[in-house]
């Protein structure tokens, strides 16, 4: 899989003196779904703004499919579709006119067939003659996606695409994004819904205070930073963890009825089997057991929290 976006040493300091990005190096692979995670003010939107040509980088270079965004800006921008974070739409235009406008901005002749397919895919076809001001918030969000897709981009930036939309619509959007990827598009999304990244992303980048903390395949990230919890429901409550189990990473519930063993997902030395053998040797009986794995959200919080 080759790279479609190459970001090299990109920094951004605003005229106010605030440094939003500090030497970002990142590559996005062609055809992947990349989730960029970070707390508010981390620099996600600034980075997207720079790639899309809205914000000027203080230093560094960005290439989109081999085109420099400064020297060969026209070719670079023609490949990109952007769905902004805010619901920024016209009020009085019709749905059809606004998507046609966007397609025109990208230098493409009218293509009613394509626009119809985009609007149908986003359940907006019935609203094509409606004024934008009459649409609900969820519809406006979909309209922004339709506008971003009007010129058939190869790279789609979704800045908080599902903020403020209901659960059903969110799942519809996830399906749409999957279909876009299946059609060959590269999707970069920022989101506060870690569940979204966990559900969809191939790779995850975590940005905090303008620095890229890490970039990993999602599965590797889960494996590398994730932890697992094995919980035992005890037949007889314990007052304290028995001395025989000292040295193991254990939590005993307040009522003494549940003993939880927390272990690193990467750790192969301390196996679950060994632990259960020790529990049995210690004469502890249990009536039930359950296992949970840390979510991407847990990992994200653990990565970002120390630097706060």
């Amino acid at each position: 899989m080759d790279d479609i976006i190459e970001i090299t040493g990109v920094s951004k300091t605003y005229t106010s003196g605030f440094t939003a990005l500090k030497g970002i190096d990142l590559t996005i692979r062609r055809g992947e779904i990349f989730a960029l995670l970070g707390p508010n003010g981390a620099g996600k939107t600034t980075l997207i703004g720079i790639i899309c040509g809205i914000v000027r980088a203080s230093s560094g270079r960005v290439m989109v499919d081999g085109h420099d965004i400064v020297r060969d800006w026209r070719r670079a921008r023609s490949l990109i579709g952007l769905v902004p974070q805010e619901l920024t739409t016209d009020a009085f235009e019709s749905v059809w006119n606004t998507v046609s406008f966007t397609r025109g901005l990208f230098g493409l002749p009218a293509n009613p067939t394509h626009l119809e397919s985009v609007l149908r895919a986003l359940s907006l076809w019935d609203k094509r003659d409606s004024r934008i001001m009459t649409l609900s918030g969820g519809m406006k969000r979909r309209l922004l996606i339709a506008k971003a897709l009007a010129h058939e981009p190869r790279v789609l930036f979704l800045d908080e695409p599902t903020a403020g939309v209901d659960v059903d619509l969110r799942h519809d959007m996830w399906q749409l994004i999957s279909r876009l990827r299946a059609g060959g598009a590269t999707v970069i999304l920022t989101t506060h819904y870690i569940e979204e990244a966990e559900e969809m992303a191939d790779r995850v980048g975590v940005i905090n205070k303008g620095e890229l903390v890490l970039v990993r395949d999602k599965a590797d990230l889960m494996r590398e930073f994730g932890s697992k919890r094995l919980s035992l429901r005890l037949r007889r409550p314990l007052a304290r963890v028995p001395p025989a189990l000292e040295g193991w990473r254990l939590e005993l519930s307040g009522d003494g009825g549940e003993l939880t063993y927390i272990y690193d997902a990467r750790d192969v030395c301390e196996g679950v089997g060994d632990f259960l053998d020790r529990v049995r040797d210690a004469g502890i009986e249990f009536t039930d057991l359950g296992m949970t794995e840390s979510s991407l959200e847990d990992i994200f919080v653990s990565l970002v929290r120390p630097s706060k």
Binding site: I54, T88, D90, A91
Partner: peptide
């Protein structure tokens, strides 16, 4: 004012 200028600025328009 509305923020829709983003699409003009991010389009391949000089």
């Amino acid at each position: 004012f509305t923020g829709t200028i983003y699409e003009v600025l991010s389009a391949p328009v000089s």
